[in-house]
Design a protein around this nucleic acid. Structure first.
Lengths: 508, 508
DNA sequence: AAAAGAGGTCACTAGGTCAT
DNA sequence: ATGACCTAGTGACCTCTTTT
């Protein structure tokens, strides 16, 4: 029996898209891991991997073994609660809810309780809501198994979608993607177990030409003498200051040149979510293709039903009836909406003085590990602290509470919290750009070859950032420290994101 | 159905025994102390047998009749008071404690009252403490029946645990075990996706008594006026300085009182990894059960094969041939080897001035998210920078290269790198303890309810740490910054660890 | 025949209630 | 306050049905 289990990768859940594919779980039962069967996803009706234990065939065969549901060796997790899924579809809780048309008591909190394996029984309203949010539908009853053919097809679609994405954004193929059966697994590095799927960026070759060389921060390889003046604030204006001046300018310029979100706004179609194919934007949140595709596809669980929500919640990927989109198309579309933003980060990196002096492998590693974090920082500016809203396409704003009520996931919530805190620091664009550079070179170093070089570059950037901040905010010396404390927060967001993506992929 | 249950009963009973029917409740129930147990590996929720009476289903089966809970005929005992258990989980006393967030009066003795059936009502504080200690948690919700498979598994585990116990120490047979399944189940509970098996301790109630009150950092609940003086270091010797003095003392003391690894060294059996059951140590790396069980099971991907490595790599969990152990058992055993270290971290947390002023939920969340990071920092001292070696039990050292050659995984490698860098900063014990406190309150905040309080506490600790460091290292102002930059690294290690654990569980 | 999901069934638990 | 009792749910297991 265990043999059977082996092999699986792990999926999580997230969600993205809605439906078609797969899995979610419901809530039903399941608390324990085990149980039943493997199944797969399916395109049409909405089916999801569910926690609930499904029945058990008395018969001998395989199924019986463990209750874990897998697809091609990938272990599926419940889309609702994250528990190991035992099968698709209905389960105890969801089933009862539907069959008896139960009206649950109103949530005691803000109707946005996180639903996890351990606490899923705490709030029924939120649990049921999440079931629906994740794509479970009363109409999706599905008998019998999922045809093997169908499974296969979806898998292939996923893969080619990934491939496309990769190709598009890396002109250079440094890397990536492997293509194996594990969808994206492996695709992007293994920042972690499976790797973070969302960061394909390859990264441009390190051609020596270094166009905007600027005053390279001459990364030292030692590690001891760094940042002598780091915390002394205004005191000693050591020699490095002049260097800093230039560095600041370079980084700020790099930032401005590579961050277009606020420079373009999809004029047309912004109002009409049904509009099919507007030009892509650089900021996914404003992407014209659908409102907030990112929030939709990755952060928020996609609404199973149709156009219930407004622009925000009924992203017309490809403008049409989403029922007609294959999982492949949805994914592809979603992925594409991010390509430009990712590319911009790569461009930004290349312009950070000293970055291209790192070995190519490390440049790639930093980008793989840090692009998401950089994007989070960049997009934080879309968050309006005053009225706690986020601006999506066409200038439309959505209050955080509204989004939460709509089922924004933990990741999105955490991003809002992060954005709010960051914006509250009131940094200038100059400061933000330097901070962004710091974030990038501070990325996870587990795969770095020349750690000392990266560290040296990081120190230089940090020193520069520090002097800039102490200069601009002489009376708020805590700002620098607060900024550094944002780094672990970003790391956590990055991890949450990786997990959701992973789940998404696995499930689809 | 009943037939199923009927199996052999074993109940052991030791001493007391009580009337079966009595059952009462309290909290828990259960099993016995040391046990180890079996819990499940993965996703299973951890649940404990409890005294409380459970409901009564009119139906026939065994359970119902009197409040005795049995599994496969085995009578379960309450893990807290030893009385016959009536079911799992919550009970009257524990339930009220949690639901009403009751703050019990301080223990009149030394906060270590023995809790038994006959005297369990004597000291509420100790009783509640024991409930938590034993692993009861509000998150361990468990509805529905216990899967047959699981029952079976648990039974087997119980029995083997029993056998071991008997063999090893049959001096007292007091007790007993009952056989049940859920020994520790429940004990540990989840950290994240699946839960971090490694964090069993739930955390003591937030009893207002605050023994080592010290100068509580008075966490504010507002969010705006925080940390104004955060970075001012030596400049304005604001009132907080004196507070800092005391805080430093408190934290340092807390650290020393709760970090025992270097105070005990398993004298015997250190040489012989095959030795079966030496007394547990507080430092897993030195754990007598196996050398570095932690590194084995969690840090390093568990070697699929047998005893390739020497003492380091062939931990004789349960003293036997591990080839015969199920993945579950190995995991259990491994987890247990960590319990003491985890408990120390919990104790340390409780002693951080201000920590207990946080709401209980947040205390638990921070511990869940941060214990691993704290352990990494604590164990960093085992790393010898000079010769790049790590000291395991009995003073044996293993060079990093050797370990790598043996197949240490990415996580272990990263930990070495981290440890080396950290040790190189040359911090004093005082500084390390404060840094550890900062690490804890800087844990991932995705599940925190009162973020502002946590943030306020973090700021206080950081301010204190900063002033201490600038005082001790006036010429190395970069140290503080470097220390802060260790936080994201810890977060990454934490994630790698969670992933490995997850993978491990799923595969086993 | 084997595999896998819908639904029914019912052992069990969280929590409310109330006599001690 | 404690803990026994009751009720509303929960979810494991089973049977039946459909798909392969």
């Amino acid at each position: 029996m265990e043999s059977t289990k082996a092999g699986g990768v792990i999926a999580y859940i997230s969600s993205s898209t809605s439906s078609p594919e797969s899995c979610h779980s419901d809530s039903s039962n399941g608390s324990f891991p085990s149980s039943s069967s493997p199944s797969s996803s399916s395109p049409t009706p909405k089916i999801l991997p569910v926690t609930q234990k499904t029945g058990r065939s008395s018969s001998s065969t395989s199924t019986a073994k463990c209750g874990i549901t897998k697809i091609n060796g990938l272990v599926l997790l419940c889309k609702v609660c994250g528990d190991v899924a035992s099968g698709f579809h209905y389960g105890g809780f969801f089933r009862r809810s539907i069959q008896q048309n139960i009206q649950y008591k109103k949530c005691l909190k803000n109707e946005s309780c996180p639903i996890m394996r351990i606490n899923r029984n705490r709030c029924q309203q939120c649990r049921f809501k999440k079931c629906l949010m994740v794509g479970m539908s009363r109409d999706s009853v599905r008998f019998g198994r999922i045809p093997k053919r169908e499974k296969q097809r979806m898998l292939l679609e996923m893969q080619s979608a990934m491939n496309n994405m990769m190709n598009n954004q890396n002109q250079n193929q440094n890397q990536l993607l492997v293509g194996q059966n594990q969808l994206l697994v492996g695709q992007i590095h293994q920042n972690q177990l499976l790797g973070c799927p969302m960061l394909p960026c390859p990264l441009p070759a390190n051609d020596a030409t270094s166009e905007n060389a600027g005053p390279a921060p001459c990364p030292r390889s030692s590690q001891s003498d760094v940042g002598v003046a780091m915390d002394t604030s205004s005191s000693s204006p050591c020699a490095s200051d002049s260097l800093s001046e230039e560095a600041i300018g370079s980084v700020t310029r790099a930032h401005q040149e590579t961050f277009m979100y606020n420079q373009e706004a999809p004029p047309t179609s912004a109002e009409d979510p049904q509009e099919a194919t507007p030009p892509p934007t650089h900021c996914p949140f404003r992407g014209s293709r659908g409102s907030a595709p990112y929030a939709h596809a990755a952060f928020v669980a996609p609404p199973p039903e149709g156009p219930v929500n407004t622009a925000y919640s009924a992203p017309p990927w490809r403008g049409g009836n989403r029922m007609h989109l294959s999982g492949h198309e949805v994914w592809e579309d979603f992925s594409h909406s991010f390509t430009p933003a990712v590319r911009e980060v790569v461009e930004f990196a290349k312009k950070i003085p000293g970055f291209r002096d790192l070995c190519q492998h490390d440049q790639v590693s930093l980008l793989k590990a840090g692009t998401f974090e950089v994007l989070v920082v960049r997009f934080a500016s879309l968050f309006d602290v005053k009225d706690h809203s986020v601006t999506f396409l066409g200038g439309k704003r959505y209050g955080v509470e509204t989004l939460r009520a709509m089922g924004a996931g933990d990741l999105l919530n955490s991003m809002f919290d992060f954005s709010e805190k960051l914006v509250n620091l009131g940094l200038s664009e100059e400061e933000m750009s330097l901070f962004t550079a710091v974030v990038l070179v501070s990325a996870d170093r587990s795969g770095i070859e020349n750690v000392n070089s990266v560290e040296a570059l990081q120190e230089t950037l940090i020193r520069t950032l520090r002097s800039l901040i102490t200069k601009n905010h002489p009376n708020e010396s805590a700002i620098f420290t607060k900024l550094l404390l944002k780094l672990p927060d970003l790391r956590s967001l990055n991890n949450m994101h990786s997990e959701e993506l992973l789940a998404f992929k696995v499930h689809s």
